[in-house]
Design a protein around this nucleic acid. Structure first.
Length: 812
RNA sequence: GCCGGGGUGGUGGAACUGGCAGACACGCAGGACUUAAAAUCCUGUUCCCGCUUGCGGGAGUGCGGGUUCGAUCCCCGCCCCCGGCACCA
């Protein structure tokens, strides 16, 4: 018998697959299409992470299974390769990032091929190839042409370490999500993409796609659409109106003060609205607040602070005169930067009122039924209850009152409703070398001029130094011969834009390029896009939910609007894969020394053992831990299974030699389970099913037909082993080109079943019955049981329940 | 605080969404083979109690209630963990 030798069989079949183009997706094939996509990796110098392998192993099973189900499957792979890690590596080692990228992608490709994934390598793409980023630039020009890209001087999030502007999505807890440095604010002129123009559709059209609720919620939350009402308060003695915004207008009769952000224009010194005797303290507080970092200002444990400004506002609904305070817990960037203080029904306002001894009023009686004074923070709430002490709103529920007062304020010209969003326009400029140049020139006469389509791509020039500059300018700005150009419109002297695009640009449209990777006249042939799009199943990381996933939906909707791509949404279904942590539950990292290298594993165990183990670790969407021990279990299993299969294959038994049907049933049960579970991505139980099959079958006689079915059924999970099996039992062609085996349902309807018998909910025995036995027959069999008689002990049976094929229950 | 997802043996995790809880695997214990070890194979393995073994009894899916013949699953009230958002008014 041939031993299992992965070093021989892995490369043998990988070569065979490559030479026969086995996994090529055929444009316009007659079969129904299925576009299965897994996020392409950032090609870092560390090589493929074992977590990548887990995900790809799972999605590869899916792709192989769907092919065998008769689908024309597009399962592509490529490289997201612009960006900081490569640039930093290039700076450190003084190597051109192009060279670094080539090394990295070569290594990634080698590793993924070593794992035996069924990617269609003929469609490989690289976002840093000019032939690719030409189209990234082209899409930018379309944004520009349609008024959705604009340059604006604005305070932006600035990472002092990476010397780069950041999008809001890249700032996590006041820190750059990639390097962890504290983010500063910096005034810079930046290209922006108007994602806010698509905010409503990005939120609403989530209803049309199959994403987990957690993703939809995270995106809606990030978009943060709310209806606000802006209410005008007169500021006493100034002739000014102060516009206060709220989402809880039903508490307006509970206003006892107004709190305003320090940056609010009403406090501008030259306007002198603040009474003279208060000016010094107000100014001092303002300065102090502006000296704090956004993080310090947002620190929840920090005490609420503020100063009375000497100004009073008049509540438009009841004419009440209330103090106006300046405080840094109100943010100028939210609403109008002025908030009504309702300490009875808002916890922050309550804290503030307690601190400065401001009055507290009750206008809602909550579920606790209390009607008196509000003295404790635990009594502060606005979610539910009946409105009181509120004139026209008295007796209404919170929701009714909200609606009524909104209408009232709007009708009387005191307030107006305003839909606001949390999402801001996308800062699209980066002051770095290793990115797509933004295809724009600045002409003294013509202003900002887009580079004409025929001149694309604007190729990234070679530079001496890749380091970002202290001034915040891109290193490209130092290359005069590149920067200085002629204006495409007037032919006069002009300068190129030196900002490059963010890392997210190339990945916002890459799924189109896989449909037609070599097209040099369009992002892809529209016919091919029509055939392949949308992506039917998209796997990716949870960290991309408000970044890549939202950005690419935005690009897609825009490109659909201008007729470039089909359909409202790019991805029909999306799932997030779980993380693979190191042993002990910590993240794998070089510093902890717990990084698992796929090269070592494949060398030791072979690709199929590694794949099968990764499938066995747990559900696709769950976070799991690496275990050195558990992979040994799978290794043992594969070797046992190999022995069982090959010994039987060599024996070459014929069907008529076998009288026993046990294995026949087991084979069908296995196929039944895999057929049901693989598309649901319950890979861990599919591996268990395979092990159960072995445990059941390995000592029973097996026919060649059985073995052939087994080889086909295991092909998606262990592709190399399956090929060996298939050829050992005389199969023609590749096992992966075989149709998925049919389940013989008749065989699975066994002649008898064992069902449990319960008395008062406890199992007291079992009966062996035919699945189509009548209730009376079952009852007779149950009553005949010794164990039942013993437990009944003469008591009357009040009720007999028989759930066919499942259970029989007696109630006494 | 709000939103989303969870809590099952020593461990990773099963259980067709109301029908035998703990599949499969890891680990552990005992045994076989071996001079010995590794490897391999066999047996056992939720906990507690009783018994001579075959066996019998009880408890048990974060906690407390409820619905039901029957609840890991449904309902009510809590506790804890993970992820997202957040002085968002």
């Amino acid at each position: 018998m041939k031993e299992y030798d992965h070093k021989q069989i892995d490369p043998k079949w990988q070569n065979e697959w490559e030479h026969s183009n086995l996994y090529r997706a055929v444009d316009f094939a007659d079969k129904p299409k299925k576009y299965i996509l897994v996020e392409f990796p950032y090609a870092s110098g560390d090589g493929v992470h074992i977590g990548h392998c887990r995900t790809y192993s799972m999605i590869d099973v899916l792709a192989r299974f769907e092919r065998m189900q008769g689908y024309n499957v597009l399962f592509p792979m490529g490289w997201d390769a612009f960006g900081l890690p490569t640039e930093n590596y290039a700076i450190k080692h003084k190597i051109n990032p192009k060279v670094v990228t080539k090394q990295n992608t070569d290594n990634f490709r080698r590793q993924l091929k070593m794992m035996g994934y069924s990617f269609d390598w003929s469609r490989e793409i690289d976002t840093t190839e000019p032939s690719y980023y030409k189209w990234t630039q082209w899409i930018f020009l379309k944004f520009l042409e349609n008024g959705l890209a604009y340059k604006e001087k604005a305070p932006i999030n600035w990472c002092p370490k990476c010397k780069v502007g950041l999008a809001n999505e890249e700032v996590v807890n006041g820190r750059h999500e990639r390097c962890g440095s504290e983010v500063e604010m910096k005034e810079l002129s930046q290209w922006m993409l108007k994602i806010t123009a698509y905010a409503d559709r990005l939120a609403d059209e989530l209803d049309e796609v199959d994403y987990p609720e957690s993703i939809k919620a995270a995106q809606r939350n990030w978009i943060g659409r709310k209806t606000w009402i802006d209410i005008s308060f007169d500021v006493e003695g100034t002739g000014q109106k102060l516009v206060v915004s709220t989402t809880q207008p039903e508490t307006i009769y509970g206003v006892t003060f107004i709190v305003v952000a320090p940056e609010h224009p009403i406090f501008d010194e030259d306007k002198k609205f603040v009474p003279e005797e208060y000016r010094d303290t107000v100014l001092a507080y303002k300065k102090e607040a502006q000296g704090k970092t956004p993080e310090e200002r947002a620190d929840e444990k920090m005490k609420k602070t503020g100063v009375f400004t000497g100004l009073y506002a008049i509540n438009p609904v009841n004419g009440e005169r209330v103090q106006i305070w300046m405080t840094d817990f109100v943010l100028m960037t939210v609403g109008t930067g002025a908030v009504m203080g309702v300490p009875g029904h808002d916890k922050r306002d309550f804290q503030f009122a307690t601190q400065y001894k401001l009055p507290v009023a009750r206008v809602i009686v909550g579920p606790d039924g209390k009607t008196g004074e509000i003295n404790k923070i635990s009594e502060v709430q606005h979610d539910a209850g009946t409105v009181v002490n509120s004139d026209i709103l008295d007796g209404l529920s919170v929701d009714e009152a909200s609606e009524k007062i909104m209408d009232h304020l709007v009708e009387n010209g005191i307030g107006h409703a305003e839909v606001r969003y949390n999402i801001h326009d996308w800062i699209f400029s980066r002051q770095h070398y290793w990115g797509e140049p933004i295809p724009v020139v600045f002409c003294e006469k013509c202003g900002t001029v887009p580079v004409p389509e025929k001149d694309l791509p604007v190729v990234l020039p070679d530079v001496e130094s890749y380091e970002p500059t202290e001034t915040g300018e891109s290193p490209l700005a130092a290359i005069d011969e590149w920067v200085n150009t002629t204006c495409p419109t007037c032919g006069g002297t002009a300068k190129r834009e030196t900002d490059t695009m963010p890392n997210w640009a190339g990945s916002s449209w890459y799924f189109y390029r896989f449909c037609d990777p070599d097209n040099d006249t369009a992002i892809a042939d529209p016919e091919k896009l029509n055939y392949w799009m949308p992506v039917d199943f998209y796997d990716g990381g949870a960290e991309h939910v408000t970044l890549h996933l939202l950005y690419s939906r935005f690009w897609h909707k825009f490109l659909n609007d201008i007729g470039v791509v089909p359909g409202k949404e790019p991805y029909r279904a999306r799932r997030n894969h779980g993380m693979l942590l190191g042993e002990g539950g910590t993240k794998m990292s070089k510093s902890l020394g717990n990084v698992i290298n796929p090269d070592d594993l494949v060398e030791k165990f072979g690709a199929d053992v590694v794949r099968l183990y990764l499938l066995f670790t747990g559900p696709h969407e769950g976070t799991v831990e690496w275990s050195d021990r558990a992979i040994q279990g799978v290794n043992r299993f594969v070797r046992k299974f190999w022995k069982f299969f090959m010994e039987n294959a060599n024996a070459k038994k014929k069907t008529d030699d076998v009288s026993e049907l046990g294995v026949e049933i087991a084979v069908n049960r296995l196929i039944r389970q895999l057929t049901d579970e693989l598309p649901q991505r319950k890979f861990n139980t599919s591996v268990a099913a395979l092990m159960e099959f072995y445990n059941d079958a390995h000592e029973k006689p097996v026919t060649i037909e059985n073995l052939q079915k087994i080889a086909v059924a295991i092909a998606p999970m262990v592709p190399h082993v399956a090929e060996e099996f298939w050829s050992a039992v005389g199969g023609n062609g590749s096992v992966h080109a075989q149709p998925w085996p049919e389940v013989d349902e008749k065989l699975l309807q066994q002649e008898s079943v064992v069902i449990p018998v319960q008395i008062n909910g406890k199992v007291r025995g079992k009966v062996n019955i035919s699945p189509d036995a009548s209730e009376d027959t079952v009852r007779a069999a149950v009553m005949a049981l010794d164990s039942v008689q013993r437990c009944l002990d003469g008591q009357d049976v009040k009720k007999f329940i028989y759930v066919p094929g499942k259970i029989a229950t007696l109630v006494v």
